[in-house]
Design a protein around this nucleic acid. Structure first.
Length: 1075
RNA sequence: GCCCGGGUGGCGGAACUGGUAGACGCGCCAGACUCAAAAUCUGGUUCUCGCAAGGGAGUGGGGGUUCGAUUCCCCCCUCGGGCACCA
């Protein structure tokens, strides 16, 4: 009987389905193992041979664990919401639900063809209402929660409200805007809308405003990759940034825990690095460099007190020094008042002797915009009073209210005075809050006056030779001098004309001087302020202090623009190259001289904090995640908008179903298509008095928690039963591509942490171990058409002609040999193609490229399975190479694996005779078997499937050589093979007379005893070069070995009479004689 | 520009903690079977000098540590992948 793989495979696939062998029960008694694949987006193109790589690996592992006695959860589902289906709907009018359904059906058929052990009864689809009901539910949990920084966990928002009632927000500063401060009384006095506005600034799922890529011509919002060089990919229409109301997830609050969590999970080092780079934690300081009083071109626009230190130097000499001196010599009243105001004693943060414009005020609350002046004796003169009035007027123009108190007020009616200050602040903050509500954007942190930079190296502060602002920095417009105005405009126009990509890849140094100067906070030195595209607006403060001697880019910039470089590290800087060391000893650095840089960091931070010109700061690159899309095919938000307040739907009202629509045109003003369906939007109008949110959720909503749903997929009361989530717990092995490194994996980790914090599940990392599968690249084939003709010349002869290289469908090429008849039929154009052959064949050219339709190098697994069988396909994909490595597909190579299975078959059948016998196995046969058991078990455990397949081949080759047909050897071998080639294993297992499925057999245990060798054949090297082999019993004494080796003729020849210097024996490895 | 991952026969790859480099498979060559071909089987196959016995070189290049390096260290070249020039 021949190996009829297709008959066997179809038979068993059917039997397994009928007998429901893959049904997984929540059997809490058995040890569990959860093996998960990243579920696919069901695209219209179907699977190509690259997709199943990870699925086969996880399938093998899942089956292996089952044989090892585990209750294995190995489910599959579909990430069914998404843009392509909607795009397809726009183009063809077919509803996304219909095309998605169709695509899923064909995906499932392709998968089943390969023989995966999925329990389809647990299938989930993110676009099904009974699934997205719980996506919406989790969204509401996020909406109803905030992050308690003290406890480092999410908590219900009600607890925050209780705290506000009690003490305002003193304990829990607002994560969105630190300047928002209020007392318990104030909180209570706020109206509903203000309160909700403030709470929105704390919620884990919140609404804010963000830029989108808006294309007027297409009337729609575009994804980043749909925008190329500032115009839309389709049509090439201009794209502008447009502010739209958007939902966000406050993932930044979890930055630290996401970083911490990486320590306890088994992701590859590269993956962990990618995630921590994305989170991008850096520790340093924010430092403000006051602006020098150079003329500016910008108006004092918007009545903002911008650059508090302007003219400061001109008017008062080193005025900043004065402020510091004044602080050290306060009057009695000032001292008393400072003690009453400092450390937020009133609930407001006050600074003293703080410069604003060209004044130094006694006390100021920058959040409430209140200045407090303590008037002593000399304020009573007429001239002084006039000056004071003028000063108050100017400050008022900047937005400050000045409250004047006398020395007497402070000294004798202290409490009354303090209360007065507090009330004034209260009043002010309310109006400020309202202003904010109107603008819907956070106010800048006023009064810091100057260029605020973030630096991780405050120790280098005396090496600052210039400052650089991002071109987008708001100060650029305001500080540029008239002389530099034209140059700056030109530079900004240049930057504007460049795409992000171009700016990123740019090696050239570009920049422009603004004409303005900042003042060094310690030395008082003037520092030129430049603009350059190498500073990014979105990171840190969008401005840097440049230290050329310690930073490579700063150094190049300084050299390029001839900016003098200050050396603060002596010999450690050679004048040619920046030295970013932290170990050098500081020089030229005033009070830091002689200090090691590493130690100076802390000293400087303390100093700037003391001087109140900066503070210690932990900075993250990561931004909050935009969580809404202006699209139809996604989860609707369970939110109603009423009078500008977001009102969540009740849990009982979920799922909020997506309405059926006929067109997918965007709504007005860039809203999603749902905005066009007024009946749907207003379905709660009568009961709740508002319309529904018309955005939908992004792709990663459904995929952030699907691993939980598989545990209890049909639960109608909860997203999953707690008993089930406790049992199945973390995913033990998660397999998928690297493209999800920072998106899906980070969001999913965050959601898990939130659900854990809120007590819904018992673990806070979703995936214990992650395996990344590499891509399978296509192996393209080319034909060469002689230019201007329909003649094709074989690869070896093409250089004799002028030819065009054209992709040809790999499916009509055998190796490199083109099937010319099939080629003629391939496209009408080639019908009467002529060929110039070499040796009677047309040889194609080749190249390894990404597998894609347009390159005609896509190989469909169905065709391979049809020709060689699923078992061969599975093993071959694994045999190609290490799972995490990318490699090219080569259909030719599959023959070897196929031959292996045929050879295995022949151990059971010779022609039509079943040749299995019950004889006792010989020692060498047992050694072969147990060597295989050991190796294959170890390789499977460490996901080294390619070497395991090799071992199968070695094993079968050796058994075939011995003509071994013994049941006691072959039966365990079949169990071993079951995870890799389940169909043939099951068939032969039954041929051996077994009645129950091999899927539940027990994995054989290997016996070390059979592996023991009595003799070992040692390679003998002289001076490291192997010269001969000598066999010794493994337990021979070294002295005996030495004697025999040295007596050996060949060894003696190579020793050439020289004395032995060293004699090395590595037991069971090798022998080396050194002469 | 920065970060990550790779470079081993004609090809995919193996060599787990430094110990016989090239397992296993493809391809190729030779042979068997056959009228012939396919299929199958057997043997060979890193390069190089040599009829052979045997020698020499060899894991991208150069240097180093070591009795011994594909493996560890330094420098360079090169190919993939990613990026938000990350201060």
């Amino acid at each position: 009987m021949e190996y009829q793989f297709r008959t066997i495979e179809k038979k068993w696939q059917q039997r397994w389905e009928e007998e429901k062998v893959y049904l997984v029960e929540n059997n809490y008694q058995k040890p569990k193992c959860y093996v998960l694949d990243m579920f696919p987006y069901p695209s219209g193109a179907g699977l190509h041979v690259g997709h199943p790589l990870g699925y086969i690996a996880s399938d093998i592992y899942a089956r292996y664990k089952r044989l090892k006695g585990f209750n294995v959860l190995h489910p599959m589902g579909f990430d069914a919401f998404g843009l392509p289906a909607e795009q397809y709907a726009i183009e063809t009018g077919q509803h996304p639900a219909v095309t998605t359904e169709k695509n899923i059906a064909s995906f499932k058929e392709q998968m089943n063809n390969i023989g995966f052990c999925y329990d389809w009864s647990r299938e989930v689809r993110t676009s099904e209402p009974d699934y997205y009901k719980w996506t919406q539910w989790i969204f509401l949990q996020l909406f109803h929660s905030w992050y308690n920084r003290d406890k480092k966990k999410a908590e219900p928002i009600d607890e925050l409200i209780a705290s506000f009632d009690k003490e305002g927000n003193v304990s829990y500063p607002c994560p969105a805007d630190e300047s928002v401060q209020f007392s318990s009384d104030q909180w209570k006095s706020f109206d509903k809308k203000t309160k909700q506005g403030i709470l929105m600034n704390y919620r884990l799922a919140y609404c804010g405003y963000g830029d989108v890529n808006w294309c007027e011509a297409l009337g729609t919002v575009l994804a980043n990759d749909e925008v190329i060089n500032g115009v839309s990919e389709r049509g090439g229409y201009p794209v502008i940034k447009k502010k739209l109301r958007q939902w966000y997830l406050r993932i930044t609050e979890y930055a630290d825990r996401l970083l911490e969590g990486l320590r306890q999970i088994e992701f590859s080092e590269a993956m962990k690095e990618m995630q921590s780079n994305w989170i991008g934690k850096s520790v340093g300081a924010d430092i403000v460099f006051p602006l020098s009083g150079s003329p500016r071109r910008g108006e004092r626009s918007q009545n903002l007190p911008g650059f508090g230190y302007a003219e400061y130097k001109v008017a008062n000499g080193v005025n900043f020094e004065n402020a510091r001196k004044n602080r050290k010599n306060p009057t009695e009243a000032e001292s008393l008042l400072w003690n009453a105001l400092r450390n937020r004693a009133t609930g407001y943060k006050f600074r003293r002797q703080h410069p604003i414009e060209n004044y130094i005020v006694d006390f100021v609350c920058l959040d409430a915009w209140i200045v407090v002046e303590v008037d002593g004796g000399y304020h009573n003169t007429k001239e002084q009073q006039a000056l004071d009035i003028e000063r108050d007027r100017l400050l008022k123009e900047l937005g400050f209210i000045t409250l004047r108190v006398t020395n007497e007020d402070v000294l004798f009616e202290t409490e009354k005075t303090i209360n007065k200050i507090k009330e004034t602040c209260n009043l002010s903050i309310r109006t400020s809050m309202e202003r904010k509500e109107d603008n819907m954007k956070p106010s800048p942190h006023w009064g810091e006056g100057g260029v605020r930079v973030f630096t991780t190296r405050p120790d280098t502060i005396f090496g600052v030779d210039f400052m650089v602002l991002a071109p987008e920095h708001e100060l650029v417009e305001q500080i540029t001098t008239p002389e530099q105005s034209e140059a700056i405009d030109e530079y900004l126009a240049y930057v504007n004309s460049r795409s992000e990509r171009e700016r990123m890849a740019e090696k050239k140094i570009t920049g422009c001087f603004t004409g303005a100067y900042a003042i060094h906070p310690f030395s008082g030195k003037e520092i030129p302020i430049w603009v350059s595209e190498y500073v990014l607006a979105g990171y840190g403060t969008g401005a840097i202090m440049a230290v050329p001697c310690g930073d490579e880019r700063d150094h190049r910039f300084a050299k390029h623009f001839n900016i003098p470089i200050t050396n603060i590290i002596g010999d450690s800087y050679n004048g040619e190259e920046a030295n970013p060391s932290k170990d050098a000893v500081l020089q030229n650095s005033d009070f830091l001289n002689g200090m090691k840089m590493q130690d100076a960091i802390e000293v400087v931070i303390q100093k700037v904090e003391e001087m109140e010109i900066g503070k210690r700061k932990v900075n993250y690159k990561m931004r909050d995640a935009a969580f809404s899309r202006q699209r139809y095919w996604g989860e609707p938000f369970p939110i109603i908008w009423k009078d500008g307040i977001a009102i969540p739907l009740d849990e009982k009202e979920l799922p909020l179903q997506l309405p059926h629509v006929e067109t997918y045109k965007p709504g007005p003003e860039g809203e999603g298509p749902l905005a066009n369906i007024t009946a749907w939007v207003n379905q709660f109008l009568s009961t709740k008095g508002g319309g529904l949110e018309t955005n939908t959720m992004p792709g990663y909503a459904g995929s952030s928690w699907y691993f939980l749903r598989y545990m209890d997929p049909r639960n109608e009361k909860e997203f999953a039963d707690r008993k089930a989530t406790d049992y199945w717990n973390q995913v033990d092995v998660y397999i998928g591509g690297t493209e999800h490194a920072v998106g899906h994996l980070l969001y999913s980790r965050m959601w898990t942490k939130v659900l854990y914090d809120l007590g819904f599940i018992g673990f806070d990392e979703p995936y214990r171990k992650l395996i990344n599968q590499g891509m399978i690249a296509g192996d393209s084939r080319f034909v060469y058409r002689i230019q201007g003709t329909n003649q094709f010349v074989s690869h070896g002869l093409k250089d004799q002609y002028q030819t065009d290289e054209l992709h040809v469908d790999v499916n009509i090429v055998d190796g490199f040999v083109l099937d010319t008849e099939a080629f003629k039929k391939w496209k009408p154009d080639y019908e009467d193609a002529a060929f110039i052959l070499e040796n009677g064949q047309y040889i194609c050219g080749s190249a390894v490229e990404k597998m894609s339709k347009s390159k005609y190098n896509v190989v469909n697994p169905d065709i391979i399975v049809d020709k060689y069988g699923a078992d061969t396909f599975r093993m071959y994909e694994m045999f190609l190479g290490p799972i995490e490595q990318s490699k090219p597909w080569d259909t030719k190579g599959i023959e070897g694996v196929h031959r292996f299975l045929k050879k295995l078959w022949r151990l059971f059948y010779e022609q039509d005779n079943f040749v299995i016998n019950n004889a006792e196995p010989a020692e060498n046969e047992l050694r072969i078997l147990h060597k295989a058991i050991k190796k294959i078990q170890e390789d499977t455990e460490r996901f080294s499937f390619n070497t395991a397949v090799s071992q199968f081949m070695i094993c079968v080759n050796e058994l075939a050589a011995l003509n071994c047909h013994k049941r006691k050897i072959l039966e365990p071998l079949l169990i071993l093979l079951t995870p890799y080639a389940p169909h043939i294993s099951e068939e032969l297992w039954h041929q051996l007379g077994n009645k129950r499925t091999v899927l539940d057999a027990a994995f054989p245990t290997y016996n070390e005893q059979y592996l023991k060798e009595n003799n070992f054949s040692y390679p003998v090297a002289v001076n490291g070069k192997t010269r001969t082999e000598l066999s010794f019993p493994v337990d021979t004494l070294q002295a005996d070995v030495e004697k025999e080796v040295l007596a050996n003729e060949i060894v003696q020849k190579w020793m050439d009479g020289k004395p032995v210097k060293k004699f090395i024996v590595v037991k069971g490895r090798m022998i080396n004689v050194v002469v």
